[in-house]
Simulated scan of single mutants.
Amino acid sequence: MTQQQQWMSLLGLANRARKLISGEELVVKEIRSGNAKVVILSADASKNTEKKISDKCAFYQVPLKRVESRSMLGHAIGKDARVAVAVLDEGFAQKLRTLLD
């Protein structure tokens, strides 16, 4: 199993366990509330979205990881293209940080 397959299946697992939030506005809300343990942003996000999310992550000290594309991110959680997801569980977040380094 490649590293890409590993993080994608882990993200799917986190989603099924309801430990994941997707969608730009909801992700920003979770960062603000302190629930987001790691945020994953697609490399093809718009400049505005990228700035908003990376600024929020920096301010609230939430680790930010990037992945290739929004379709890959959506595919990992069994949905349409997603630009950003926030993982709300420390266990999943730690493993994802390791895989995405």
Score class of each variant (00 low, 15 high):
83 V>W: 04
67 V>I: 13
14 A>S: 14
13 L>S: 13
68 E>H: 08
84 A>R: 02
21 I>A: 12
64 L>K: 03
8 M>V: 04
55 D>C: 08
45 A>Y: 00
13 L>I: 06
101 D>Q: 13
85 V>E: 00
85 V>K: 01
73 L>D: 04
99 L>D: 00
64 L>A: 02
6 Q>C: 10
88 L>C: 12
64 L>Y: 03
101 D>P: 00
67 V>S: 02
72 M>R: 08
95 K>N: 13
31 I>S: 02
85 V>H: 02
27 V>H: 00
1 M>I: 11
93 A>R: 06
47 K>R: 15
89 D>P: 03
14 A>C: 07
85 V>W: 01
25 E>Y: 07
19 K>S: 14
50 E>C: 10
25 E>K: 11
65 K>G: 02
1 M>H: 10
59 F>E: 14
54 S>K: 11
66 R>K: 14
35 N>I: 05
1 M>A: 14
18 R>M: 13
41 L>T: 04
58 A>H: 15
9 S>F: 07
36 A>S: 11
66 R>E: 11
57 C>H: 00
36 A>G: 05
81 A>T: 08
92 F>N: 02
8 M>G: 05
90 E>G: 09
70 R>G: 13
33 S>W: 09
66 R>C: 10
14 A>Q: 05
17 A>C: 09
74 G>K: 00
64 L>M: 07
63 P>A: 10
82 R>P: 00
51 K>T: 15
23 G>S: 08
56 K>P: 01
71 S>E: 15
92 F>L: 04
40 I>H: 04
65 K>P: 02
61 Q>H: 14
74 G>N: 00
22 S>R: 07
10 L>V: 06
31 I>P: 01
6 Q>H: 12
22 S>N: 14
28 V>H: 04
31 I>F: 04
38 V>E: 02
88 L>D: 07
91 G>Y: 11
79 K>L: 11
25 E>H: 07
43 A>L: 06
79 K>F: 03
65 K>D: 01
24 E>Y: 09
61 Q>N: 15
31 I>G: 01
84 A>F: 06
